[in-house]
């Protein structure tokens, strides 16, 4: 990965800002975190914070089991911002 990790407080604060792009990214099909990261152009470690926050508060849920590479895909639950 070789990237500088930002202060988690700062990253988590941005969760609210990231709801819309993440929901847009998974609108058509469930995506794994690396896929979401690629779609929205943000580092995967930051996307983990956002996806897990959104999952916790009912915006996303995992869709099925993990794939062969060990990644779960996440789908929108339908809860609106």
């Amino acid at each position: 990965m070789n990237q500088t990790l930002r202060d988690p407080r700062e990253v988590m604060r941005e969760e609210m800002l990231m709801h819309a792009p993440i929901l847009a990214a998974v609108a058509e099909e469930p995506l794994t975190i690396p896929q979401i990261a690629e779609r929205i152009g943000h580092p995967a470690p930051e996307v983990v914070y956002w996806v897990m926050g959104m999952r916790r508060y009912g915006f996303l849920s995992e869709s099925g089991d993990a794939d062969d590479d060990g990644f779960f895909a996440y789908a929108a639950t339908g809860r609106q911002v």
């Binding site: 995967a44 993990a66 060990g70």
Partner: peptide, 30 residues
């Protein structure tokens, strides 16, 4: 990101865990 503390692992293992299962924080991989 994939270096965590044991307290964090305990949370990942707890029934009220923050993730859906034990995942690494760097990319959500099992």
């Amino acid at each position: 990101p994939n270096v965590i503390t044991a307290m964090q692992m305990d949370r990942l293992l707890a029934p009220t865990r923050p993730f859906n299962t034990v995942l690494r924080p760097g990319d959500g991989k099992v």
